[in-house]
Write a protein that binds this DNA or RNA. Structure first.
Lengths: 196, 196
DNA sequence: TCGAGATCGTACCGATCGGTTCGATCTCTG
DNA sequence: CAGAGATCGAACCGATCGGTACGATCTCGA
């Protein structure tokens, strides 16, 4: 019973439970692919409760995208951290983590990019842009610590590779995209560090 | 008067006119962002005519995506061809053509990727996959003629860069994405040809 | 000139959508 | 025990959606 009925038990827990349960459903079916009524039914919550916590369907969508962006970025940063201080190892770890994600049967591409492609609302586009900013910060940090000649350029190149790999994996080659992108990233890293 | 009323005048011309007029509208607003009624009003055609030619809204969408995929691939191939036999010039030409596209105020990312993110219908996903196949053939051809050690690998890496640049341009950095991807592509090309 | 066929404009259909409302029910606190 | 507040479930609302039907109009070939 993830969402109890009491009053003062957990004003906040209900919201978190809704968010957690709604995320995979909206990701799998698409933002417009599932109505609020069905969503509530599958979550096990009434429409009134959902609307009291999020005000609107877009409010729920924004909250879940924001949470997902933070979560996936942290996950990727953790993956890089497992490689210790080795820059090449960190880059390889990022793409190997992505490879695992691409192989997941529920993988449907980047949730933020999908959302931005569907919902032309400004708030969603802003969340997507912020998400790419988070990725860029992470990748630029790796490039800096690797001693790249131009870490900002390498960071942006890595961002293109990460996003490109995700797109290609989602729509063309789930098995190979991460490996090809990783090889490219390591080549770019070598070129960027050989020059200094 | 793009859509005359007569009977035997042009059974096929009407269909082409609908397709041409509907494409930019569906691209700008999204497949689900504009209803059939409004679409017909803006095209200047009746719903009956549209449905007789395409059967269903999905039919229209599929026809327009297929046409757009062929058209944009041909456009990119032409851009590469302007660089003559120089492989580096061909790669650079591809990304500079993309840069011009990204700068277009109506640029909204890749129409096929957007469509696949919205419409979870199998036919749309198939068209998107075929589209990436077209891109891959084009890029692998360039890699082969450049004498890359592993042209299939380089082709797939270039595909990741092209798609990644398009995504980043659409959602984060319209001005810089193409340039960064081009630099990365030329670095990969150098590495792939230096080895042999 | 006449009829076949393409098109128009509009009305219409059933379904679904996001969102609201309300009475009943439950749980905790005072 | 009493009441405040959160939740439920179901009904309800207006809008919009994709798709169909129909009579009127137009253009062509025979």
């Amino acid at each position: 019973m993830p969402v109890p009925k009491g009053s003062t038990i957990d004003p906040e827990r209900t919201r978190a439970a809704i968010l957690e349960a709604a995320t995979p459903i909206l990701y799998e079916r698409g933002l417009d692919g599932v109505g609020v009524a069905e969503l509530c039914a599958r979550i096990g919550v009434s429409k009134e409760t959902l609307y009291r916590h999020f005000g609107t369907k877009d409010g729920l969508v924004a909250a879940m995208l924001e949470a997902r962006s933070e979560r996936v970025t942290r996950w990727l940063a953790d993956a890089a951290a497992t490689a210790g201080d080795d820059p090449r190892g960190q880059v390889a770890a990022v793409f190997e983590a992505l490879e695992g994600w691409y192989g997941d049967p529920v993988f449907r591409g980047c949730a933020m990019l999908n959302a931005a492609a569907q919902h032309h609302v400004e708030t969603v586009r802003a969340i997507t842009a912020r998400h790419l900013d988070r990725y860029l910060r992470l990748l630029t940090g790796i490039a800096e610590r690797a001693g790249a000649a131009d870490p900002h350029l390498l960071g942006r190149q890595l961002l293109v590779l990460v996003e490109g790999a995700t797109v290609v994996a989602a729509h063309h080659d789930p098995a190979g995209a991460a490996g090809h992108a990783r090889d490219a990233a390591l080549t770019l890293l070598s070129a960027a560090t050989r020059a200094d």
